[in-house]
Simulated scan of single mutants.
Amino acid sequence: MPLPRTDRSAPRELASTAWPDISPDAWVLVPVGSTEQHGPHLPLDTDSVIARAVALRAARALASGPAGPPLVAPTLAYGSSGEHAGFPGTVSIGHDALAVVLVEMVRSLSLWARRIVFVNGHGGNTRTFDDAVGRMRTEGHDVAWTCCEAPGGDAHAGRTETSVMLHLAPADVRTQRAAPGDTRPLAAVLPDLVARGVRAVSPSGVLGDPTGACAEEGRGLLEEMVRATVRRIEAGTADQRGRLVVPARPAPRPPRATTGPDGMKTEH
């Protein structure tokens, strides 16, 4: 949710900044979400709300780093959500249109921003980010992307997203409507999702079980998303698709045995 503009510790938001106040070494976080069904109990902007919250909180944590504070751009609230097309309210611009938007955003931002990081809140956008950001990196742009992930979370509109939204926007959660949907792991339902869409798998649109969700759990999940985002951005390591990763720590070297003058072996 937006932080008050009177809060001096709040991240700087691009939308409320005048152009003379943008530094020549500015860098930008761009939240990207979706407008799509999230079951009968969550709002259509769930992915966008979460992506924005992660970007704002990550920007605050990054402000004291060596790269200086990033600007947070307005949220891109439309994504590739064709799998949710069977539900009223869903607005999808599809893979091709989203790719064009991302490419043109990078080309425009790169005229004045030295670095761009997209913070993605919708899993359906992944293929588009892989293609578009990878292409922009081959053009020489300093751009990467990362996603809002909760380890062990369920797929869609289940306990994970419901808990986070109870923390961020409790007034928008219709808790009395929360009910389990298809609770199988995403890998098990993915072929049907791709072939027939979410509604064929779960008439309610829920992939998971939102019952038992709570705001306190959501606060912890959001904090973990922010910590992971900050770690990836600070590491600055991206794969060939432009997706930020945390470099694996090198394995410790095994101790080397040597033999001393007394014939005793030692390890060091």
Rank of each mutant, 00 (worst) to 15 (best):
Gly158Asn: 04
Gly89Lys: 07
Ser23Trp: 03
Leu168Cys: 15
Ile50Ala: 06
Ala257Lys: 10
Trp27Val: 03
Ala10Pro: 04
Asp21Ile: 04
Ser64Met: 00
Val49Pro: 00
Pro66Trp: 00
Glu216Ser: 13
Arg241His: 07
Val103Glu: 11
Ser9Tyr: 02
Cys147Ile: 12
Gly158Cys: 11
Met136Asp: 14
Pro252Asp: 02
Pro88Thr: 13
Ser92Glu: 06
Thr211Gly: 03
Val173Glu: 08
Arg60Asp: 01
Ala97Thr: 12
Val246Arg: 14
Thr128His: 13
Gly153Phe: 13
Leu42Gly: 01
Ile93Asp: 02
Pro69Ile: 01
Leu62Trp: 12
Gly82Leu: 12
Ala213Arg: 08
Ala77Asp: 07
Glu36His: 01
Arg219Asp: 08
Asn120Arg: 01
Asp239Ala: 06
Ile50Glu: 01
Arg57Lys: 15
Thr229Ser: 09
Val189Gln: 10
Gly94Phe: 06
Ala248Asn: 11
Val245Gln: 07
Asp142Trp: 14
Met105Phe: 15
Arg232Ser: 10
Val103Trp: 06
Thr146His: 05
Val245Cys: 08
Arg57Asp: 14
Leu190Gln: 00
Gly260His: 12
Glu104Asn: 03
Leu111Asp: 03
Val245Ile: 13
Leu109Ser: 07
Ala178Gly: 13
Pro247Met: 09
Pro74Ser: 02
Arg227Ala: 13
Asp47Cys: 15
Trp27Ile: 04
Ala251Gly: 02
Ala58Arg: 12
Ser204His: 04
Pro4His: 09
Gln176Tyr: 04
Arg174Leu: 13
Pro250Glu: 11
Ser92Tyr: 10
Thr162Ser: 07
Leu42Pro: 01
Met225Asp: 03
Ala155Pro: 01
Gly181Asn: 05
Ala228Asp: 05
Thr128Asn: 10
Thr160Ile: 12
Thr128Met: 09
Val103Ser: 06
Arg127His: 03
Leu166Trp: 03
Pro40Ala: 15
Ala248Lys: 06
Ser80Asn: 14
Gly263Trp: 08
Arg196Ser: 04
Ala59Pro: 09
Gly236Cys: 10
Ala53Ser: 15
Met136Ile: 10
Arg241Ile: 00
Val91Asp: 00
Ser108Val: 05
Gly89Ala: 11
Arg199Ser: 00
Arg196His: 15
Ile116Arg: 08
Ser202Pro: 00
Leu56Tyr: 04
Glu267Ile: 04
Ser48Trp: 09
Pro254Leu: 10
Ala200Ser: 05
Ala213Met: 00
Val72Ser: 12
Met136Ser: 15
Ala188Asn: 09
His167Asn: 13
Gly218Lys: 09
